[in-house]
């Protein structure tokens, strides 16, 4: 699937550009990606090292375990395949907390660590496990209490009430999360029937 989508984006982009006379823009974009890649690498490496360093402290001290135990009634429901004391739960809870607090750049390192832990429990290492998909739904549907980026952007462009969209944003995100989890559940059921 991802191979198809990747090729589709390239093909449609380049053919369209050729027909619309924007082929120079595409050439420019290609070199821009190379430059962007280096800048992004340095930024990501820095963020990763900071948060993964901190995460190691949180794990070794038992802080993540404590958080995991605290949130087990809810998080355990979402991840029925994981054992009660699974180390993956710690990283998952840290990731969810970072998302809730609007700390986007901390959420990614915690999320990657959680994926690493989930992969260790995965029986088919080339295939996504149910827990992984649940975890990704939680991440892609933006569960947050503070859409900080948008509020800042609205304030900057002169809004009279930059925060007036907060409630609606949280609810819309929540609906996405619930629908996504429901769809995931139905997909799993459907596959079992076949």
């Amino acid at each position: 699937m991802v191979n198809f989508i990747w090729l589709f984006l390239l093909l449609v982009g380049i053919v369209m550009a050729a027909f619309c006379g924007r082929i120079e823009a595409v050439s420019a974009a290609i070199w821009q990606v190379a430059e962007q890649g280096i800048a992004l690498t340095l930024e990501i490496a820095g963020i990763m090292m900071l948060w993964m360093g901190l995460l190691r402290l949180a794990e070794k001290s038992g802080f993540t375990n404590f958080l995991a135990r605290l949130t087990r009634p809810v998080v355990g429901l979402l991840f029925p395949d994981l054992a009660k004391d699974s180390p993956a739960l710690g990283a998952i809870v840290m990731n969810i907390s970072a998302n809730l607090l609007g700390l986007g750049n901390a959420a990614t390192p915690f999320g990657l660590k959680a994926m690493d832990d989930l992969q260790k429990l995965n029986k088919r290492p080339e295939e996504a496990s149910n827990s992984m998909i649940t975890f990704l739904v939680l991440n892609t549907s933006a569960i947050t209490l503070i859409p900080a980026t948008v509020i800042a952007l609205r304030a900057k462009s002169g809004s009279l009430f930059p925060e007036e969209i907060v409630g609606i944003t949280i609810f819309s995100g929540l609906i996405g999360t619930v629908v996504g989890l429901l769809a995931h559940f139905l997909f799993c059921r459907f596959r079992r029937w076949r």
């Binding site: 992969q119 080339e126 998909i133 769809a183």
Partner: peptide
């Protein structure tokens, strides 16, 4: 983590986006 078969992950993610 080297996952190559995404199963329904992308579909479900995009359904969630559409719902939001």
């Amino acid at each position: 983590v080297g996952i190559r078969r995404y199963r329904h992950a992308l579909t479900v993610g995009l359904i969630a986006d559409a719902a939001s």
